[in-house]
Write a protein that binds this DNA or RNA. Structure first.
Lengths: 325, 325
DNA sequence: ATAAAATATGAAAAGCATTTCAGGTCAAGC
DNA sequence: GCTTGACCTGAAATGCTTTTCATATTTTAT
């Protein structure tokens, strides 16, 4: 592969001039510019980006940390990030961690090693305390409330949204309410559980262990929730959960077993993914795609102005009434 | 940030020795190794990967070209690639193109500019003839049959799988069959349309323009298909299509309008995504996740042995009978 | 005891492009 | 006619690491 030196030689100019042409700097005479362009074409030259990155100290690349790609919640965030990144000519490094701390560390190291300019964290295992120091190497953005740190946050009040759903169910007369969530110890889900417990407490109910379902990310796990409920003597009359996919599975599986929805079992999903509309599932809308887009913007602003402090951006949610409550 | 020179100075060795320690080369005395490691810790040193990439001519990074991330078919492929890549310590550059040729070119250029070591193409706009020359800069793998080229292919016989579905419908007595596919001019969909037409021809039917639905990627578009069918005087008795999401939407929307499935309208989806199982949709299973994994493997083998010729790997499919036919 | 092989280390080259600095030309303004 | 500023160009420094080659020291084998 040709390099800039050979271009310079062929065009009869210095490498500095070649660089100027390549980077569209002013102050290059038209004839030299033409000669350089000609040589570039003749030698089929392209820059070696690794050299460019080395000297510039930037890569125009941002990493996204998430446990699973193949999951509508995260896919929506990526979608948002990808579109925003595209517009700013940034590339997206996808880091699927499966919640392995080791994988998360690798990405943080990537930032330190200047292979990426910043990180967007959708969901993670290691603590913010460990992550925060890495913010000195480049902007880190959280898609959840990271608190008061050197880390920007774009988030939805998951406590509030779950509370909204709970209050709605309670208004509809439900007292025996269960929940299903993803990874139970994530920040978002801890808040949801708190909202759940507090809402129950307000009507004098105590949460029952067996009505709380953990690790419910997928259709399959939604099906299992119903199978488990079928084995119970006392069953919940309503379920609220973190995801429309499992909610859809729960509705479908329940009906398969003769459980009427919403009469015998009310269900509230989360996200307002297309499937919720198609299946008429009552859900709480929150635009994760927008979260992704704003997360990238938060990154972009900070990378272009190092003096900017970390920001916090909270996005709204709203209940969408359909036919499962 | 510290660099290797400072480490060398602090440890009282040459930079060559530091590099040896960092890269775990043999032939370094234990005391010097310790001194280097000590200096690394003290100065909080990390390699500058851009320099490493420059000198090595590799980045341990592979790009995936696809139109949409937020789509189960592509998300499955990514999932497969991501897992395989993780195991080989490769990073994944996600290139969402929205079928814009310009974006696809950018990725090809990335390969030429040595920013990535190879490319996996899930679906694309520009022709293989244009893409092929770039294979001289690094392995390019297609997740469809790229034909006889310098490009490896991992694919499913989409002609065959659609044919299987058609024959199944015909066996079940259907003659008025419609189809729904994604982007109509993609290689895969051209083959599907061919299978569709040939199967109809075999029973003396002519395909009807209005029973073929294009650009049906999503739930929403599935809903629209039914809405359109409702306006028709003569309606198809069966639909076969490229995707379980739209198939699910079609089934749900049909029932909403009093069209019985499968009695009035039979539906076959594609992929056997979880939703197909939950909703009991008859579908054709094809493991796109496996396609992704094998695509990465094909890349990995070629990057580690430049002499290897491009490979072709065809994966099986099978009909899964459920309750929508 | 001596040749051969293994171990250990550093200087310098190679990988490639950007940017600063210094020096130059040329035209406009006073 | 002279100063000033805009325009243009190249040498050299900079960013950082890996790897080759030459050399030196030990160890092992004969």
């Amino acid at each position: 592969m040709a390099n800039i030196k050979q271009i310079a030689q062929m065009a009869g100019v210095s490498i500095a001039t070649v660089s100027r042409v390549l980077n569209e700097h002013p102050y290059v005479k038209e004839d030299k510019r033409a000669a350089v362009l000609d040589a570039v074409a003749k030698l089929n030259y392209s820059q070696n980006m690794n050299a460019v990155h080395l000297v510039r100290g930037k890569t125009l690349m941002i990493a996204v940390i998430l446990p699973y790609v193949n999951h509508p919640y995260f896919a929506s965030i990526i979608d948002g990030v990808a579109n925003a990144a595209l517009a700013c000519n940034y590339k997206l490094l996808l880091c699927q961690t499966d919640y392995q701390a080791e994988e998360e560390y690798k990405v943080l190291e990537l930032l330190k090693m200047k292979q990426i300019d910043g990180i967007i964290i959708c969901s993670k295992t290691i603590s913010w305390d460990v992550i925060e120091p890495y913010a000195s190497y480049g902007p880190i953005i959280a898609c959840e409330n990271a608190g008061d740190r050197e880390i920007s946050s774009v988030f939805i009040d998951h406590y509030g949204s779950f509370k909204l759903g709970m209050d709605y169910l309670i208004t509809k007369g439900h007292q025996h309410i269960g929940y299903f969530i993803g990874r139970g110890d994530s920040y978002n889900n801890i808040n949801r559980k708190r909202a759940y417990a507090e809402a129950l407490q307000a009507i004098g109910e105590t949460p029952r262990e067996e009505w709380g379902f953990d690790r419910v990310f997928t259709f399959e796990r939604g099906v299992e929730v119903i199978r488990q409920i079928l084995t119970m003597k006392e069953r919940p009359t309503a379920l609220i959960g973190a995801g429309d996919d499992p909610a859809a599975a729960i509705v479908a599986e329940a009906r398969k077993h003769g459980i009427r929805v919403p009469e015998d079992l009310a269900v509230i999903g989360l996200d307002n993914q297309p499937i919720a509309e198609v299946m008429g599932i009552t859900t709480i809308e929150q635009s994760m795609k927008e979260v992704g887009g704003l997360a990238f913007q938060a990154f972009y602003e900070r990378i272009n102005n190092k003096d900017l402090p970390p920001t916090k951006h909270e996005l709204p949610f709203r209940l969408i009434e359909r036919s499962t409550v």
